[in-house]
Every structure is written in C-alpha cells, then in structure tokens.
Amino acid sequence: MSEKNGRRRLAIIASKGTLDWAYPPFILATAAGAMNWEVAIFFTFYGLPLLKKKLDASVSPLGNPAMPMKMPFGPLEKIDLPIPNLIMSNVPGFQQMATALMKKTFKKKGVASIEELRDMAVEMDVRLIGCQMTMDVFGFKKEDFIDEAEIGGAATFLEFAADANVTLFI
C-alpha cells in the first residue's frame, strides 16, 4: 500500500496500441479505480497513440493467428471463417474490415469501447503519463493528446511504481 495515503496502487505500462491490446490497460485501470485504488498508466512506444484526442486503434488478424474472424450478425455469426494469410495481407482494406467487425461485435455483446473506458479512467483520476522519448521519436506533440495526459519518463513511472501493489507491463 502506498505510504502516502493508505490506498492500494496499480502501475501499468501500456506498450501496445492495437484495438485488442488497448483493452487490458483500460479495463484493469478502471476496475482498480472502482475499488478506490490509485492508478497510473505509462504509455510508451506503440501504446502512446492511446492518448490521442481522437482514437484510431485498429486490429490486424495478420500475425494474430488465434484471432477468430466472425461476422457480428447474420447466418455466419457462429462460424469461424478460415482466411489464409495470403488473402489477409493482400486484400486492400482487410485490416479496416477486421477492425470494424471487432468493434461491431464488441458493441453488440455489451463490451465498452476504448473511448468509454478511457473517459471513465479520466473521471476516476487515473494518471495517464505519456513517454517524452516516444513522443519525440514518433513526432507527437502534447496538443495531440487529451488534456488530462501528463508527460513523463521512466523515472516518473518508477517513482509511482515503487509504492505499487500491482505492476504490469502490457
């Protein structure tokens, strides 16, 4: 428990920015926030775009061989569509389609969107820390991010994580 105020602490490093990998940090952060834990997420490398004002996370079935490709509705809903990598990598717009299908399926099933979870995290005063080094390397400016984002580095994260009960690298 944090020595400062007796609250439990969760420290997360979010290093991936695809739609699928955007979920774990925000789900865990809001669940911990709901239990009145102190939470900080450090966004680095490909996780950094999750701080952008307008989120555009997508998902690729390419390189995710375990990802089921299903239609969100209709007669094919229950069927796993086996699609060869050759098609997925060569058909233009396949990734956009896979992203749209995943978003639609999630919405239909009652899963919150990343935007909703992030808004809730902000409302819970979860600290959202953007990595300066990644910003400079990939050309992000602080104005690209939501107002609640703060800027920090490895030491910023470690100072918070030093008193954390749970620390996760995602």
Binding site: I27, L28, T30, A31, G33, A34, M35, K109, G110, V111, A112, M120
Partner: peptide
C-alpha cells in the same frame, strides 16, 4: 448484458 469491468465501475 455488460462485461467486466462495467458493473463495478
């Protein structure tokens, strides 16, 4: 019809 973590949130 809601999934984790929405109920506790």
């Amino acid at each position: 019809w809601m999934y984790t973590p929405l109920a506790v949130v």
